[in-house]
């Protein structure tokens, strides 16, 4: 049996966060995400979705409250372990991809995990195969199309073999074909998946659960079939 603490991939208790200018972004968030769940975090602009996502692996740490990842508390001491477990794909691939070649970018995470050169090479080719970008190792990310960059961004995180994959607006700005292909890609990935999005269709298709946020609070949490058919709720929180 799984020990109780490890039943949840992410466990957040009473998390508060204010930006340096004093804006309250999170006002007491409680959220538990089970292992292997696929969860959509939805809400209007400025609801605190991305801020919450940045707490999952300690990029931001709240002014009060507790975040646990696979039963490990997120703090300075556990940071390396936490970032091995939680992979974060940022919204803008140009923020994620900073290296002159794809290969270096995908290898960046595994190298930070201090893997041996052979295992780094293996992780790079495996991650690129997962996202359907085999053979692009020597290309420069800047020369790529938006969809390709997005795939490489996911590969840079998958190469670290995370147990929890967090994606911020994975299909925003994508053309319909690119979006479709990307949904298929996310569908086959294993593990816990957390998707921050405005895309109702994607939430319906991929997720077991929808967490709705507004003004720094969770306002609804349930199955997509229930939450996303409540038009009054959706309208109130700016999703339709």
């Amino acid at each position: 049996m799984i020990p109780f603490a490890r039943e949840y991939a992410i466990s957040i208790t009473d998390l508060e966060y204010s930006y340096p200018d004093g804006t309250k972004a999170l006002r007491g968030v409680d959220l538990k995400i089970r292992r292997n769940e696929t969860v959509a975090i939805m809400g209007p602009n400025g609801a605190g979705k991305s801020t919450l996502a940045l707490h999952f692996n300690g990029i931001l740490t709240g002014s009060s409250g507790k975040v646990e990842v696979m039963g490990i508390e997120v703090n300075k001491k556990n940071m390396r372990k936490v970032r091995d477990i939680v992979g974060l794909v940022f919204q803008d691939p140009d923020d994620q991809l900073f290296s002159p070649t794809v290969r270096e970018d995908v290898a960046f995470g595994p190298l930070n995990q201090r893997l041996s050169p052979e295992r780094v090479d293996h992780a790079v080719s495996r991650a690129l195969a997962w996202v359907g970008m085999e053979g692009s190792e020597q290309r420069s990310p800047h020369h790529m199309s938006f969809g390709e960059k997005k795939r490489i961004s996911v590969a840079t995180v998958l190469a670290m073999d995370p147990e929890v994959l967090v994606m911020d607006e994975p299909v925003a700005n994508m053309d319909p074909r690119g979006r479709r292909a990307f949904l298929e890609l996310i569908k086959v990935l294993e593990g816990t998946k957390i998707i921050v999005t405005h895309d109702l269709g994607m939430a319906r298709e991929l997720c077991d659960r929808v967490v709705l946020m507004d003004k720094g609070l969770i306002v609804a949490d349930g199955r997509p079939s229930a939450t996303l058919s409540d038009e009054v709720l959706l309208e109130k929180h700016g999703l339709i």
Binding site: N57, R83, L88, F90, D94, D95, F98, F108, G109, R114
Partner: peptide, 22 residues
């Protein structure tokens, strides 16, 4: 602002200030 986000994305992948070489 972009520099800030790039740094966050790097930290998320375990960057601790030194570039690994291989």
């Amino acid at each position: 602002e972009r520099a800030e986000r790039v740094y966050q994305a790097m930290s998320a992948r375990g960057f601790d200030g030194s570039f690994p070489r291989w």
